[in-house]
């Protein structure tokens, strides 16, 4: 049997006295889309940053395709090349044109010829309707366009796993749709994804599994209809009730 794409076991992370991840377990199978939901501070972002090795764990292990990536002898740069992460604030490089944002890693990290990398980048941009923005600097783009560029930038490395950290939270409501459409297309292509989100409707639609994080652990998980429709845990119910009151479901 092939191992899951991502396997997290007993993750623990604390900042000072604040425990952010508390004995957290999570498996993600190939082609699976897992949505992480939960209140701010429940550990969603920290989990994604730990998986990308941007944060050091205090305890626990993470395996990517069966490889132990939290072994201190592993080169984190090599691990990061096998996955992509997209941030809430896009984090595009402001001094580089859209095209150069996308081709930076293929040219410098993967040593691919510039012409080939640029052709691929233009092709990907065209597929998300941003072909004519290739020569622009990021600050000329809307938030939704910037976030789509950030997703394309994460995709050129052909990642095994795509991590999406509240990618629509910084967007104006009318721009959320264009980013969600892109993620929907990625699911159709079979991309394995873990996404932290506040968009419950979207989680219900696109996720194969929803995990409710509370106090740094997965408190409840299952198919979206079940977790979002008939949650069993009181904390989950309480969280979803607040979301409904805020008009987000």
């Amino acid at each position: 049997m092939t191992p899951p794409v991502l396997r997290c076991r007993a993750l623990r992370k604390a900042y000072g006295g604040q425990v952010v991840l508390d004995n957290l377990d999570l498996d993600v199978a190939e082609h699976e889309v897992v949505a992480l939901i939960g209140a701010s501070g429940s550990g969603k972002s920290t989990l994604l940053r730990c998986v990308n090795l941007l944060e050091d764990l205090d305890d626990g292990t993470i395996h990517l395709d069966g490889d132990h990536i939290t072994d201190p002898r592993v080169d984190p740069d090599l691990v990061r090349r096998r996955m992509g992460i997209v941030f809430q604030a896009y984090n595009l490089f402001p001094h580089l044109r859209v095209l150069d944002n996308i081709t930076l890693a293929p040219i410098r990290v993967h040593r691919r010829p510039r012409a080939e990398a640029e052709a691929q980048a233009r092709d990907l941009l065209a597929r998300v309707g941003l072909a004519e923005k290739a020569e622009d600097y990021p600050d000329r783009l809307s938030g939704g366009q910037q976030q789509r560029v950030a997703i394309v930038r994460a995709l050129v490395n052909s990642p095994r796993l795509l991590l999406l950290d509240e990618v629509t939270s910084a967007l104006d409501p009318e721009l959320v749709g264009e980013v969600l459409t892109m993620i929907r297309d990625l699911k159709a292509e079979g991309m394995t994804m873990v996404l932290a989100t506040h968009e419950m409707g979207f989680a219900r639609e696109v996720a194969d599994r929803v995990c409710f994080l509370d106090g740094g652990r997965v408190l409840e998980e299952g198919p979206p209809e079940r977790v979002l429709g008939e949650p069993t845990e009181p904390r989950t119910r309480q969280f979803l009730r607040r979301i409904v009151e805020a008009g987000r479901l």
Partner: peptide, 11 residues
């Protein structure tokens, strides 16, 4: 966050 973005790309 610029460093995080660059490192996440494998640089």
């Amino acid at each position: 966050s610029q460093l995080a973005a660059a490192r996440s790309l494998g640089l």
